[in-house]
Amino acid sequence: MTMLASKRLWLAVLAWGITLVMFFPIFWMFLTGFKTEAAAVATPSLFFSPTLESYMAVLERTDYLKFAINSVIMAFGSTALALLIAVPCAYSMAFLPTPRTKGTLLWMLSTKMLPPVGVLMPIYLIFRDTGLLDSQLGLVIVYTLMNLPIVVWMLYTFFKDLPKDILEAGRMDGAGTSQEIIYLLLPLTLPGIASTGLLAIILSWNEAFWSLNLTSYDAAPLTAFIASFSSPEGLFWAKLSAASTMAIAPILVFGWLSQKQLVRGLTFGAVK
């Protein structure tokens, strides 16, 4: 019994240790945002007089709200669009499978292994010629396509868990395909769909490669906002930290609020 207790204690210490090491850079960034530029480069210290100077400077110089709104629009817009496409797609794969369904799923997932930079040139040219460069719509499309394989895959596994009988009973009761999806499939797999959506929102929010390459100002999201502080003003640590903190704060709060949902959806089946 004592063996077990001490083992548990060590495991807890280890877990906390790893967590702190991983979290420390973010914590440090958070603190640095409240320092003056001079204090930021001075000998590292936990004790300093906090100031909002850097935040003020950042907000004064750039339009934080515009970047944030872009991020929100693109993360939520692309996720909604991806779900809209993926739900019927996963429905047909889960409930009307063909011998090639499994292969198609694997192929879809395998496209995620292609390095994005490999297709930057063609996509850039297409966007330039269709006027999608630096537009919200353009990035929404890119994020939708970027997340679609994962979203379809996840929805497929959740839908697969739903007993087929229930949908068949619905069909006997007179439900057409769309009614089957709206009245039975969606409510029954809602936890799974929600966690899939949350993941897609987080992935889109954090995406930096496409946003940096395909936007300049009008459609730039928060990832571009951080980047704009890093290159010309790389030495101004306090301002950079303040900007980064402001960029990740919304998604951190969002993730914190929805963590229960996220974990439940990702660990258990959809209907239990």
Partner: peptide
């Protein structure tokens, strides 16, 4: 149905 297939 054998499994009843009620809408949960």
């Amino acid at each position: 149905f054998q499994s009843y297939a009620l809408y949960p």
